[in-house]
Each structure stands twice: as structure tokens, then as C-alpha cells.
């Protein structure tokens, strides 16, 4: 359980985190979402006691990080995979961490094996690819078999196989009852890997809740294709439906359910060829939510891709 209360962090003239409140619970994967520069990493650094909050506090199991008795047994964290001395071998890096918390060296070999980098354990970390460094970072987070895990942008640099592996891995950690807190700036990633999400923008909380609640709250629409679009349009408008888009292919209707539209069409004698409910994708929900709070947004020339 991670609790963030009224957390505010001010650097000289910018507010990185602004009166943030949220909780992260055990047993689920909680995604921490926001555009680049929205304060995710700062929040995670404060949770780990690396940065001091200007106001408010962040606690882990009710304690500030510095008060934890056995930090690696309670919290495992991966903030920046490349933040390791490049001249040290993977094994020595993990051994130094293990020694500080009296974790036996046999555990080092176990986690190296688990993340799949045992064969390069004696190689210098400086020669590792980003994907290998991510795996080493994950191995470090797992060393103390902690109840709470924090990962800052863990899928960056992983290949598709690695991404699939890490998703399954987060899921299994949560299923074991652990608290899993994962930041990302990619909504699409969170849509498939998280249960709960906390969305921030410009350091402020935008929304939090389950993925399902979030998509449900977003406006959906229904796509209809019929034999007579004009006749259907008139019938729908008579029933308070809003047609947001109309072309030769069909109509996009909001404010009415697929069942209602089917009934209206039936009553009007219109033949329906296709009737597809379209939920707003999480990506759209996210863009919508954070559009006002993108720090480094692109304006002006937009290149179509």
C-alpha cells in the first residue's frame, strides 16, 4: 500500500507535483499515467525518499521510506535502468545491493536466472542493451522479494517478447497479493497491463479509478449502416439521437444504445446492414483527459503519419 497525501514538489520556479493525492493498493496492477514531464518520476523519487517533498508526504505501509527497517524486503524499485555503474558486472552490482540488506548471494543467482540474464552475469553492465539493463533493474527490484514494487517506464527499450513477458510478470506479482505500481506515458500499454490507473498532468491528479470505469465514463458511439441513411437520420433525430458523423458508409450515433437504434430503425422500416457499438479507446480517453496538461505539446505544423 502506497499513500500519497497532498504531495507538492516545487523546484526553483516550476511545480513538478501539485497537491497530489492517491493510494495504490495490493493485489492489482496500478498504472501511473501522464505525459512526459507530468511529474511521474518526481512522485516516484519522493515515494523512495530520494527527493524531499515541499509539502505533503508519501508513505509506504504507513511509514516514510527512510523509516523502513528492511527497505529491499519491503519495496523493490526500478527507476532508471541505465543508472548503474557501467564498469561493474551485473553480478557484482546485485551482490552489492544484496549485501546491504543481508540478502544471501544465492538469491542474486536466482533473480539473474529469473529475468534471463544469467549468461551475461559477469559482463560489464556498460555493454548491456537497454532491454538487458531493464531486466537487470527488475532483478534488482526482486532481490528482497518485496511486497511493493515500483517501476518507472519499465517497457521502454524492451522488444515485443520482453513486453509480453513483463506484462505477464506484473500480473503474476499482483495475483500473489503484491502492490504493483507502474508508470508509463503510453495509455495503450496500461490498457492491457493495468487494472487501476492514476492519471496526472502537470503534476496534478486528473483522475483515478479502474480501467473499466474510465472507458465507461468516456462517450461511446454506435456506427450504423443501413439501406436508407436519410430516413434513419430523421427517425433518430426524432428520438433525441445525435448523429456525429454522416457519410456514404454510414452514421455515427451517440446518446443512443445499439438496442435503441435497432428498435428505431425497425419502427421506421429501415433495413440495417451493420450496427457496431464503438467504445472510445483508452488512448482517446487519455488524450482527451490530458490535452490541457501536456507540458511539451506540439503546436502549429502537424505532420500526418
Amino acid at each position: 500500500m502506497i499513500t500519497v497525501e497532498h504531495l507538492t514538489k516545487r523546484f526553483r520556479d516550476t511545480i513538478a507535483v501539485n497537491d497530489l493525492d492517491f493510494e495504490v493498493h495490493p493485489g492489482v496492477v496500478t498504472g501511473f499515467l501522464g505525459p512526459n514531464g507530468s511529474g511521474k518520476s518526481t512522485t516516484m523519487r519522493i515515494i523512495l525518499g530520494l527527493d524531499r517533498p515541499t509539502k505533503g508526504q508519501a508513505t509506504v505501509k504507513g511509514k516514510r521510506y527512510a523509516e523502513l527497517r528492511d527497505p529491499l524486503h519491503e519495496v523493490g524499485a526500478l527507476l532508471d535502468a541505465k543508472a548503474i555503474h557501467p564498469g561493474r558486472s551485473a553480478r557484482n552490482h546485485l551482490r552489492s545491493l544484496a549485501a546491504s540488506n543481508r540478502i544471501p548471494f544465492s538469491r542474486v543467482d536466482e533473480v539473474l536466472e529469473f529475468v534471463g540474464i544469467a549468461s551475461v552475469a559477469n559482463k560489464k553492465v556498460g555493454n548491456f542493451s537497454l532491454g538487458m539493463s531493464q531486466r537487470l533493474g527488475i532483478a534488482g527490484a526482486l532481490l528482497g522479494d518485496p511486497e511493493i514494487l515500483l517501476f518507472d517506464e519499465p517497457v521502454n527499450g524492451l522488444d515485443p517478447e520482453g513486453i509480453r513477458w513483463i506484462r505477464d510478470f506484473f500480473r503474476s506479482l499482483a495475483n500473489e497479493g503484491r502492490t504493483v505500481f507502474v508508470s508509463s506515458h503510453l495509455m495503450s500499454e496500461m490498457a492491457v497491463s493495468a487494472d487501476q490507473i492514476v492519471v496526472i498532468g502537470r503534476g496534478k491528479l486528473i483522475t483515478q479509478g479502474s480501467i473499466d470505469e474510465l472507458t465507461a465514463s468516456a462517450k461511446g458511439s454506435v456506427f450504423v449502416r443501413a439501406n436508407n441513411h436519410q430516413q434513419l437520420l430523421n427517425a433518430l433525430r426524432a428520438k433525441q439521437g445525435t448523429v456525429t458523423e454522416q457519410n456514404d458508409d454510414g452514421l455515427s450515433v451517440s446518446d443512443l444504445s445499439a438496442e435503441e437504434i435497432g428498435q428505431i430503425a425497425f419502427d421506421a422500416g429501415v433495413v440495417i446492414y451493420e450496427l457496431t457499438p464503438q467504445r472510445a479507446s483508452l488512448e482517446e480517453v487519455f488524450m482527451d483527459l490530458t490535452s490541457d496538461s501536456v507540458e511539451y505539446g506540439s503546436t502549429g505544423v502537424r505532420r500526418e503519419s
Partner: peptide, 14 residues
């Protein structure tokens, strides 16, 4: 310079 201080301090917070 390598940033490893963050990992070190998460293991030894005092």
C-alpha cells in the same frame, strides 16, 4: 554521475 546513487539509497535510505 551514473545515477546509481538512487539505487544505492533505495537499499540504504539512511
Amino acid at each position: 554521475s551514473t545515477g546509481s546513487i538512487r539505487t544505492t539509497l533505495s537499499a540504504v535510505p539512511k
